[in-house]
C-alpha cells in the first residue's frame, strides 16, 4: 500500500465537492452508518463511508476512480440515516459528475447503459426500452443479456418494437446539445445574469431620467 502524504491534501477538490454538494464533509465522524445500510455495498470497491473519508482527506484520484461511484443506486439510505445530516448520496452524485467531467471510464457496463439511456432519450424524447436494450447490447457485446426475458415480456405487449416518439424530441435533443456545448456552465450563466442585471439598472436610470 502506498503511503498517503497528509500534509498535501487536495483542498481545491474538497472545496469543489463541498460547493457542488452543499455539504460540509468534515461533519462526517466515520460511524459507518452509510456503509452499514448501503444495499449496493457488495458491488463497491470502496464502501461509502470510506469514500467520505477519502473526500475528507482530499484524495481526489482515489475518489474519482472508484467503481463505487457507478454502482450507487441513489436509494438515499445513506442520506436518510446519517446521524450528522450529511446528504451522502449527493456527495456520491457530485463525485460521479466530476468523474464524468474528468473523463473517467467508470464501470463500463453501467456507464454504457446510462449513456445508451440518454441517447435513447435524445433520439425519441422518451426512453424506448427495446431500443435501449439493443443499443446497450451492441455496445457492450453482451448480446445474451436478458434474452431470457424477451419471451416473457414480448407477448405481454409490454415491449413495443417501435419507439413512441415525442413531437418534442428535437427540443430534448437541443437540451442535451446545449448541455454538451456548455450553455449551462455556471460562470457563463452567472456572467449573463450579471450583465442582464446591469442592463436592467441602466434601463431603469434612463427611465428615471426621462420621467
Amino acid at each position: 500500500m502506498e503511503t498517503i502524504d497528509l500534509t498535501r491534501p487536495d483542498t481545491a477538490f474538497i472545496r469543489e465537492v463541498e460547493k457542488e454538494s452543499g455539504q460540509t464533509v468534515s461533519k462526517c465522524y466515520q460511524c459507518g452508518n452509510c456503509s452499514a445500510g448501503c444495499p449496493m455495498s457488495f458491488a463497491y470497491d470502496i464502501p461509502v463511508s470510506r469514500m467520505m473519508r477519502l473526500v475528507q482527506a482530499g484524495q481526489k484520484e482515489a475518489v474519482l476512480s472508484a467503481k463505487s461511484l457507478w454502482m450507487c443506486a441513489t436509494c438515499e439510505t445513506c442520506t436518510q440515516r446519517c446521524p450528522n445530516n450529511i446528504d451522502v448520496a449527493k456527495v456520491m452524485d457530485v463525485c460521479r459528475h466530476m468523474a464524468r467531467r474528468e473523463g473517467k471510464g467508470g464501470v463500463y457496463a453501467v456507464k454504457t447503459f446510462w449513456d445508451a439511456f440518454m441517447q435513447s432519450v435524445g433520439m425519441n424524447g422518451k426512453v424506448h426500452e427495446i431500443g435501449l436494450m439493443v443499443m446497450y447490447m451492441l455496445r457492450t457485446g453482451r448480446v445474451f443479456t436478458d434474452v431470457d426475458l424477451a419471451p416473457k415480456a414480448l407477448p405481454k405487449g409490454k415491449m413495443s418494437i417501435l419507439p413512441h416518439r415525442a413531437k418534442g424530441r428535437k427540443e430534448v435533443a437541443d437540451i442535451l446539445r446545449r448541455f454538451h456545448e456548455g450553455a449551462a456552465d455556471e460562470q457563463k450563466v452567472q456572467a449573463r445574469l450579471a450583465a442582464a442585471e446591469q442592463a436592467g439598472k441602466q434601463a431603469a436610470t434612463q427611465e428615471g431620467g426621462r420621467s
Binding site: 460511524c31 459507518g32 452508518n33 456503509s35 452499514a36 455495498s41 457488495f42 464502501p47 461509502v48 446521524p83
Partner: peptide, 25 residues
Amino acid sequence: RVSLIYPKGDKLIVRGVDTLMGGQQ
C-alpha cells in the same frame, strides 16, 4: 453504527458495519 434491525423468523437481523475492516458490512 447499526443501520437496520429487522425480524426474520424468530431472529433479529442486525445489519451493521465494521469500520475497522474498512467499512465492511
